[in-house]
């Protein structure tokens, strides 16, 4: 077997549905076949590669450039910013706000995606059984996504207002005390997480539901014949076969959640006093939250987030490969 196929990192995992079936590329006429496949693959990838270069090369370069120079508003307009090396990164890492922001980022991200995924999967399994109105209701679940974030964020802030919010009104009518959702340093992060979970559930529901659609019905029928109950069917069929889709959903969820700014900004502006400031919010505040745009530290924070996302990207590929091997 030529080096080419074995060294190429594979982005594929044969679904359990075809477990035991031969791999898609037939082996015999190895070298020729592989080369022509490579050319074909390149052909299929060409639009994407051109697209990536066209749309992202400059912004990516710009973000790194910004973070390595000491841009003031003046040098942003006139050019000629001083090269600062890793100075901006050092400033960010040694800032008093860094550790709390990092902690908030991890709490916000992991609680959000764990809850979004769990709720999304539960709903996807629930909606898998076609019942009256199921398609319409599933469509309705996407409605929150149609709202501009300024609207959904404001609505949540409205509902969670300490004094005239509907949530506290309900709590009080049950005899529970008022909670200062957005203005208590202990609750502000919880509040934005709740709103963010709400925003993320439709995304998880739709992707996981589509994933479920690709699991052959026969497997469930066979399992039912073997006497497996719904719980066992979920853990033995649904969950394992959904793994590739789950993996990508979680990874994308992570990437999107890491960079969330709008919801937090609209609801609490990262406050009170930094209690709900994540790295992304901090970056945004440096660049646009004050009267004086400070792009260099903002870009440095942005690049740190990028590194975090990359680390999880590695983890994803690693897990995927390990699974491929087994």
């Amino acid at each position: 077997m030529p080096v080419t196929t074995t060294s190429a990192p594979r982005l594929r995992k044969p679904g359990g549905a075809e477990a035991g079936l031969p791999a898609s590329a037939p082996r015999p006429p190895a070298r020729v076949r592989v080369r022509s496949t490579q050319w074909a693959a390149l052909g299929f990838l060409a639009p994407l590669i051109v697209y990536l270069l066209a749309c992202y090369a400059y912004p990516l370069y710009r973000n790194i450039d910004l973070s390595l120079h000491d841009y003031t508003v003046r040098s942003f307009v006139q050019g000629g910013a001083d090269f600062a090396g890793l100075e901006n990164y050092r400033d960010v890492l040694t800032d008093d706000g860094f550790l709390p922001a990092l902690r908030n980022t991890f709490l916000f991200t992991f609680v959000s995606i764990a809850a979004q995924y769990a709720i999304g999967l539960a709903l996807a399994v629930f909606f898998r059984n076609n019942f009256r109105l199921s398609a319409v209701l599933r469509g309705m679940f996407l409605v929150p996504w149609l709202l501009p974030l300024i609207v959904s964020g404001s609505t949540w802030a409205w509902m969670l207002n300490s004094d005239n919010g509907i949530v506290n009104t309900v709590l009080e009518s049950f005899g529970a005390g008022r909670i200062n959702w957005l203005t208590d340093p202990g609750w502000a992060l919880v509040s934005v997480i709740i709103a963010n979970i709400w925003l993320g559930v439709p995304f998880n529901l739709v992707i996981l539901y589509s994933g479920l659609q690709n699991i052959p019905e026969e497997l469930y029928e066979a399992a039912a014949l073997d006497g497996a109950n719904a719980w066992q069917q979920f853990w033995r069929i649904t969950f394992p076969l959904l793994r590739p889709v789950s993996g990508i959903t979680l990874l994308l969820g992570l990437v999107y959640t890491l960079k969330v700014v709008d919801v937090i900004w609209i609801m609490t502006t990262g406050g009170p006093g930094g209690a709900s400031t994540t790295l992304a919010v901090w970056s945004y505040r440096e660049a646009f939250g004050t009267g004086l745009p400070d792009f260099s530290p903002a870009a440095a924070i942005g690049n740190l987030l990028l590194l975090i996302a990359l680390a999880f990207g590695f983890l994803y590929l690693h897990l995927q490969r390990r699974q491929e091997r087994t």
Binding site: L52, C55, Y56, P59, L60, R62, N63, L66, L251, L252, V255, Y256, L258, K259, A280, S283, Y284, A287, F288, A298, A299, G302, L305, L306, A309, L310, G313
Partner: peptide, 10 residues
Amino acid sequence: LVVQMIPGVV
């Protein structure tokens, strides 16, 4: 993955 992390503003 990386390109998705480029801030929208940039």
